[in-house]
């Protein structure tokens, strides 16, 4: 029993070490030329394009649900005029970065792991190495940088769409005044809140690209190996997003 526990702890520690070395390598090569700008643009498009529809959909419905639930709660305290800022603060500080990151993980992160995993099992990564070309420059760095650029942008879109989703429900469905919804928002939402959301989305971008690239790069054999890596990438990224969100929240609060 103790031996099994020790073996599990050692394996986990080794995997964590592997992941950290992988990230350190990726960050190192991100600052060493030659830079692959064309690949970076391609990956920005990959993350942005693949996730846009799902961000628009989930963003609008997240705002609409928030409007319904918060209106019900705030009315109990006679504070329904604060619905706009409550929605905006919830989205900008917390829900926007987290939900957008989870959506992008499911949509683009899984595809990224599968793509790199297939490149691994079909020896395309070995082919790059055998040509004296560094696979990190071609596969990992562009994804890492693209995710760090795209995640805040997608989060911003998620927040804006969510606020408008909330507006539709608050004004058209619940009969609130449009002026109240937005004017109170301006009073309560600070630059600090926007910065918090930005820092969170930046770090989530790094986490998702790191985990998904690592899992794809170190995929097992055959279709089963790719499928396992893809599942692990999505689960690990999602769990890390929520854990990191708590720590970021505690630090930045």
């Amino acid at each position: 029993m103790i031996r099994k526990l020790g073996s599990w702890a050692l394996t986990t520690l080794r995997k964590m070490g592997d992941m950290l070395i992988f990230l350190a390598n990726a960050i190192y090569f991100a600052f060493i030329p030659p830079f692959k700008f064309r690949l970076l643009l391609k990956q920005i498009r990959f993350f942005g394009n693949k996730s846009m529809v799902v961000i628009l959909l989930t963003g609008s419905f997240a705002g609409m649900v928030l409007a319904l639930q918060l209106y019900y709660t705030l009315r109990k305290f006679g504070s329904d005029a604060l619905l706009g800022p409550a929605i905006a603060l919830s989205l900008i500080r917390e829900l926007g970065p987290v939900l957008a990151a989870l959506m992008v993980t499911g949509r683009a992160g899984s595809a990224l792991t599968a793509e790199i995993g297939i490149m691994r099992i079909s020896e395309q990564i070995d082919a790059l190495s055998s040509m004296a070309l560094n696979p990190f420059r071609y596969l990992i760095v562009p994804n890492l940088v693209a995710a760090v650029i795209v995640f805040p942008l997608l989060t911003a879109i998620f927040d804006v769409i969510g606020i408008f989703g909330g507006y539709v429900v608050a004004v058209d469905l619940l009969g609130m005044s449009g002026g109240t919804y937005f004017s109170q928002m301006e009073v309560f939402v600070d630059m600090k809140d926007i910065r918090m959301g930005l820092y969170k989305s930046l770090s989530f971008g790094l986490i998702v690209a790191w985990v998904c690239c690592y899992k794809g790069f170190n995929t097992g054999y055959g279709a089963e190996g790719v499928s396992k890596s893809t599942t692990e990438a999505v689960v690990t990224s999602s769990v890390l997003i929520l854990i990191w969100d708590y720590f970021m929240g505690s630090i930045l609060l």
């Binding site: 490149m119 079909s122 395309q124 070995d126 082919a127 190495s129 055998s130 040509m131 004296a132 070309l133």
Partner: peptide, 30 residues
Amino acid sequence: REHLGVLFQGGALFDSINVYDNVAFPLREK
């Protein structure tokens, strides 16, 4: 490796680019 060439079992062609770009790839990059 600059002086080595490897023909992998399955070819290991980059499947996101066409035949021409695959063959041109080492020249463009190196």
